[in-house]
Nucleic acid binder design. Structure first.
Lengths: 341, 341
DNA sequence: TGGGCGTACTGAACCGTTACGGTTCCCGCA
DNA sequence: TGCGGGAACCGTAACGGTTCAGTACGCCCA
């Protein structure tokens, strides 16, 4: 039976035809993929675990780019891509347990995510993106610290010393407002933690006390969040000359809020982002471009390349690129010092 | 064993604990999802079949919107979403056969697609989007004819009689150039066929002979395709006053090509699209908005709502909306008749 | 004519889980 | 003490395909 469908060379054409005819007559719908998976121990699919609601993933251009790359890699290998419904609110891990996949890609989840823990318990390989803390697992990412340091030095050269920061959520608990140093240091989202730490280092080099730098956190990753955070910054710390955002989405929201309030960018206020999404480049946002699609592709390749299990986990670090843009300029005070008021 | 994991009420807490402890000690990784699926006859996932490469799906905003809605519906039901690698070039149907899913959503494939045929052979329910021809299956879509007729009447009222059309691929075979009436009538992509037929009807009502209307087909659905098609139209049929595109992506490409050639829109040439993607509304494209996200959501709901099998297939037809925009205006000649040259 | 060999085909074990029916055990009650 | 009954637990049969050992048979050659 099995042979008739999958191994035509193992039996005579006439028997094969007879078997297939009989099967059709009996209404046999073809081999059951699940039973096949059970026997062969292969599911032919890769599971993707996201930190956000599935539907959100399609609204964030960076996530969409990642998905595109991952889908590409899966397609090349003939594997399906299973999006796992892991609601970050509920701690319901059942979806991870019941996913019939040959491996997992975990994208940008906090290090204490119960779904991540569930993935690690499954006896299949996993690749983690943007979350290097687990030492046992293959990972792909960028050098977040170096990337944002480049951006910081760019602003420092322009003369900025009084900056404000808008960052994405630092933990699974909602905190829309200032993020204390402790909260920053204990952030469960490694990417955010790394970026903030690197900023602090870069500015320490020119004598800026990080304790004095306002860091506004937002739970929802939307332009509206960026806008409200920018408004908050401008009200509580009006002396800042630059707003650095840890994502383009936040930066674009901040940009439009700042302009809505009648301030000119970059003359009155410098704004920077992170990611390099299309819309950011379109409006000339000063940012850092990271190869999101390549990241997805690399993750898929790593997972499917039958990791020759060298013992040590493999790591792929992709390059980033400073995108100067037009939303960063010399701060007011410096300008005035050189050219008068 | 099974009970220990899944039915805590069936046994005493202490036995459960003992079982679980022993299991852990033995390195038991938890119940195998594939075996569970085999036994329970449920996979906990929905399969999505697309006409394009998986990676392409993430580049077309309309498709992304659809995915978003579908993912939402799946998430609500606790189901995963499996993207099936169905390369339209290869006729390799194995991926459909080996997908462990409880049902399929088929999005915008041609009616002679072998993958579609493979889906129909599987003994699981399916929902088809934008492809109503199969009478046996639940479907969700819009009234393509009525929608584009509204747009056509809009142009007719403005005074357009000499138009050109740019459409997406009509069949699985590549044909970048004029589409004959036969090819239009025999198009395997029902959506395109319906739109062209409706346009022909709308213009017939004002005495336009459809045989004289140039219809340019493009295989790749990209802005570049739209641009080159527009260039082709302007060269072969310079007398046309309007270009109607069957998608916004094509229209945006056409728009930028037309402007690149120094023609003003809509003064020199009217351009219209279809879909209502964000970028289209941003640049003020005259188009028809269709609820892509709702479409995905409806498809998911239909599939997962345990179709109470009323015998007749169910059908969901969503509303569309004319978006006037700023890329459609009165044609030159009429303008001149009223206001002088 | 018989031994050896290769091909075509058959049967049974196994993958790991869940569903289901049977068995034990314990408690309350007469 | 005997009995009814329910809770707790256990054993086993599928689910449907793959794989592999084993059988039957035809053929060649000695």
């Amino acid at each position: 039976m099995s042979n008739a469908y999958n191994r035509p060379d193992q039996l005579s054409p006439e028997l094969r035809k007879r078997v297939l005819d009989t099967a059709r007559r009996l209404g046999y719908p073809g081999p059951d993929p699940v039973a096949r998976s059970l026997r062969t121990r292969k599911a032919g699919a890769v599971g993707l675990l996201l930190t956000e609601n599935l539907s959100y993933a399609f609204r964030d251009p960076a996530a969409v780019g990642f998905l595109e790359g991952l889908a590409l890699a899966c397609e090349d290998a003939g594997h399906g891509l299973l999006l796992i419904p892991a609601n970050p609110e509920h701690e319901d891990v059942a979806a991870v347990h019941s996913a019939g996949v040959d491996g997992f890609v975990v994208y940008s989840v906090p290090d204490d995510d119960p779904h991540l823990a569930a993935v690690m318990e499954r006896p299949v390989p996993a690749v983690i993106c943007d979350q290097p803390n687990l030492s046992e697992v293959d990972r792909v990412g960028i050098d977040d610290g170096a990337a944002i340091k480049g951006l910081a030095r760019h602003l420092i050269e322009l003369g900025h010393r009084k900056i404000g920061v808008i960052c994405m959520r630092l933990a699974r608990t909602r905190n829309d407002g200032p993020a204390s140093s402790e909260r920053q240091a204990n952030a469960h989202f490694h990417v955010q933690r790394a970026r903030l730490a690197a900023l602090s280092e870069a500015f320490a080099e020119v004598g800026v006390d990080w304790e004095q730098v306002p860091v506004i956190e937002r739970f929802d990753h939307t332009p509206e969040s960026g806008g409200s955070a920018a408004a908050q910054l401008m009200e509580t710390d009006p002396e800042i000359t630059a707003v650095m955002c840890t994502s383009d989405i936040l930066a674009l929201g901040a940009l439009s809020e700042v302009r809505r309030q009648g301030r000119r960018v970059p003359q009155d206020l410098t704004i920077t982002g992170f990611d390099g999404i299309d819309d950011a480049e379109r409006v000339g946002l000063t940012t850092v471009r990271q190869p999101v699609m390549e990241k997805g592709r690399a993750a898929g390749r790593l997972l499917l390349d039958a990791g020759e299990s060298t013992g040590r986990p493999r790591e792929v670090v992709l390059d980033t690129q400073l995108v100067p843009g037009s939303t960063a300029g010399a701060p007011r005070s410096v300008e005035e010092r050189w050219f008068g008021p």
